[in-house]
Each structure stands twice: as structure tokens, then as C-alpha cells.
Design a protein around this nucleic acid. Structure first.
Length: 341
DNA sequence: AATGGTAGCAACCGCGCACTA
DNA sequence: TTAGTGCGCGGTTGCTACCAT
């Protein structure tokens, strides 16, 4: 059977999204919810294909997305998870609730690959930080087979471990908004760029504003130098809470504040001992108690479960040195990847 | 100041899977 | 069982900003 194109390509706009398009898309999703992407261009009048709309929403407009500034812990998690899962960015992203697969993929390709390569060449076989060479105890085929059966359940178990309540306000929100001040100019020429394009910064603002919508009933738009620059008065329900980053904005289940999220990754040696390798049985046990991926393949954050299990599993580098099998698996994959550089 | 190279990132493309009729 | 459809994923491209010369 032939596969029809996702759109007829005729009259379909490509390239960067404009703020106006973002607003239209956000407004539509706010009203109808994500999904049925095929209908989005038709119903909104956007000259974009459905895939483009979905991608734009998933990667940039969806609430709760953190962009840029990967922390050391996130970096480590990505490295470990990439070693374990390979280039399964969506799976890796599911462990980093605020990050998109695209973001992680880009970060891997642009930063971490180089970093690891540098590390690999610099150390030249010395064992350090879990990234060095070693003698694999099992073949890649073996661990891949094992992963095939284990990854899915382990993924769900880990997501369960990530589940927590979000009660802290985001401290970084306001400063980011300030940093973005003026970036939403439609002329895209009013402010100097910092580290990203003016457009990227502006979509971040859209996301943050949307967080406010999702969290609260629509309120009259508040006059503000930042929001008015965005022409958000075209959209009903602009919420001032997104500017203030008050805890009221945390009702959204998808959103995890910076503070809360960072706390997840604080290494805590006092946490209970767990096996560094999630066995199938353990994972299945978790799986039976949880309900994941409610929306857009991201875990929910309803049931507070200590993060220590995942944390320990991912970060206990001493276990790497001890040569546990599960971490050997990571090492194998990591070495395989490094060899590709 | 101008130019060329490079890095970073947003977005696109094609494929595969799941679901339905 | 097969065809049609929608969606998600991973790889890749191309644009833009930055940096070195």
C-alpha cells in the first residue's frame, strides 16, 4: 500500500514558525486539546502540515518545557541513558520530563558527543567517570535482546520513580522572562541575541504563558510590557500568573518546577539501597501500580515516589567500577557509541 | 570592517507502528 | 487479511549567530 503524504505539500508553509502561527496553534489546542493533528491545519487555517503543527506543539509550545541550560545531572542522565538505550531519544526524554526528545537529541549531537569524545581521547583508556573503556562481558546482541524485554518495563518503573508533586514555584521563570524582554518583536530586530535566536526565546514565552492558561481559569489579560509586545491580546485568556510564576501555576500536572526538578537530581546517599539494575520483576511490579504517559508520552506527576531509585541506578558510579552487569551494559553501549565518533 | 568557517538549533523528511474499517 | 490513516520517532537539513582571521 502506498503511503499518502501527510499533507498535499501545495500551499503548505515551511520554515520557522511566526508568533502569529504559534498563537493560533496554542489557542486551538487550548480549546480542543492536543491530538487529531490532521484536523488542526484545517480548523485553524494554518498553512502548515499536521506534522509540523504537532512538532511545534510537542517541542516548543507544550507547557512545562525547559529549554537550554542542561544541568550536570541532566547531562549525566542523558549520557547514562544514551548508553543504556541508544539513540532512543523519546525514551530518554521520558526520564527528563521537562525536556523534549528533539532538545536532548540536539544536545547530544552538539555537546555530549564532543564531550565524550574528548574524554575518551583524553583519558585514553583510563577508567574515569564511567565513560572509559572496559572489557565487555556480554555481547551487544545479548544486551540488546535483554533490553528489548526489559526497557519497556524499566522505563515505566523509572517514570514511576520520577513521579512527584510539584509544589515549588519556578524561580527561574521571572528571570527568563526578563531575559526575553523584547524578543517577541515581530520584526525580530529589537534586541541583541544572547545564546539562542530571538525566535526561540519568544516561543519560550508562549509556552510559559500557556502554562498559566492551563493552570487557571482564563483571566483578563494584564497589561505588561512583555506580553503586550507579543501581541497576546489577540488571544483570550492570557494569564498574568505566568509572568509571576506563582505556585498557582503548578496545578498543571505536566509542569514540574525548576526547583522541584532540580531536587530530584540531588545526589542523596541516604536513600534506601536498590539494585542498580531494574529487573523485569521489579519493573513489572511498578508497572502494575502505575498509569503513565497520560498525555504526549510524558509521565504524570501525581503519586509522590522517591526518586532515589532511579537516581541511584543512574548515578552510582561506584557500581560501574564494580562491574555490575547492568552497568556493563551501559558501558558496552557507550563504548560502541564512542567508537562511532 | 569584511569574510569564511563553525556551532547550535529549529524544523523537515521518511519510515515504522498501532489502530480501524 | 488487507488497506487506509494518524501519529511518533530518529536522522538529517538548513538557517542563523557567533567566532576567528
Amino acid at each position: 500500500m502506498g503511503r499518502p503524504p501527510c499533507c498535499d505539500k501545495v500551499g503548505v508553509k515551511k520554515g520557522p514558525w511566526t508568533p502569529e502561527e504559534d498563537i493560533i496553534l496554542v489557542s486551538y489546542i487550548q480549546e480542543h486539546g492536543p491530538g487529531n493533528w490532521r484536523a488542526v491545519p484545517t480548523n485553524t487555517g494554518l498553512l502548515r502540515c499536521s506534522k509540523s503543527c504537532r512538532l511545534r506543539w510537542t517541542n516548543y509550545l507544550r507547557p512545562g518545557i525547559k529549554r537550554g541550560n542542561f544541568t550536570d545531572h541532566e547531562e549525566k542522565m542523558i549520557i547514562h541513558l544514551q548508553a543504556l538505550l541508544g539513540n532512543r531519544w523519546a525514551a530518554i526524554a521520558s526520564y527528563l520530563p521537562q525536556r523534549t526528545d528533539n532538545d536532548i537529541k540536539n544536545y547530544w549531537n552538539t555537546h555530549l558527543k564532543k564531550k565524550l569524545k574528548k574524554l575518551q581521547t583524553g583519558l585514553d583508556g583510563q577508567n574515569r567517570d564511567g565513560f572509559s573503556s572496559f572489557q565487555p562481558s556480554i555481547t551487544k546482541g545479548q544486551w540488546e535482546r535483554r533490553l528489548q524485554t526489559d526497557i519497556h518495563t524499566a522505563k515505566k518503573a523509572l517514570c514511576d520513580a520520577l513521579s512527584l508533586d510539584d509544589t515549588k514555584p519556578s524561580n527561574s521563570c521571572l528571570s527568563e522572562l526578563k531575559a526575553s524582554n523584547g524578543y517577541y518583536s515581530l520584526t525580530r530586530s529589537s534586541q541583541p541575541s544572547q545564546s539562542s535566536t530571538t525566535y526561540a526565546s519568544s516561543t519560550e514565552n508562549i509556552s510559559r504563558l500557556l502554562e498559566g492558561w492551563m493552570a487557571n481559569a482564563p483571566k483578563p489579560a494584564q497589561t505588561n510590557s512583555e506580553t503586550t509586545q507579543f501581541s497576546f491580546n489577540n488571544v483570550t485568556g492570557t494569564d498574568s500568573s505566568s509572568e509571576e510564576c506563582t505556585p498557582t501555576a503548578t496545578n498543571n500536572n505536566e509542569m514540574v518546577s525548576q526547583g522541584a526538578f532540580d531536587s530530584l537530581f540531588a545526589l542523596d546517599s541516604s536513600t534506601p539501597d536498590v539494585s542498580p539494575s531494574l529487573s523485569l520483576d521489579e519493573s513489572t511490579q511498578f508497572q502494575s501500580e502505575t498509569n503513565f504517559f497520560q498525555d504526549e508520552s510524558k509521565p504524570s506527576f501525581e503519586t509522590p515516589v522517591p526518586f532515589s531509585m532511579l537516581e541511584k541506578w543512574l548515578f552510582d558510579e561506584s557500581l560501574i567500577a564494580q562491574g555490575h552487569e547492568a552497568l556493563n551494559i551501559q558501558q558496552i553501549s557507550l563504548d560502541d557509541n564512542v567508537n562511532l565518533f
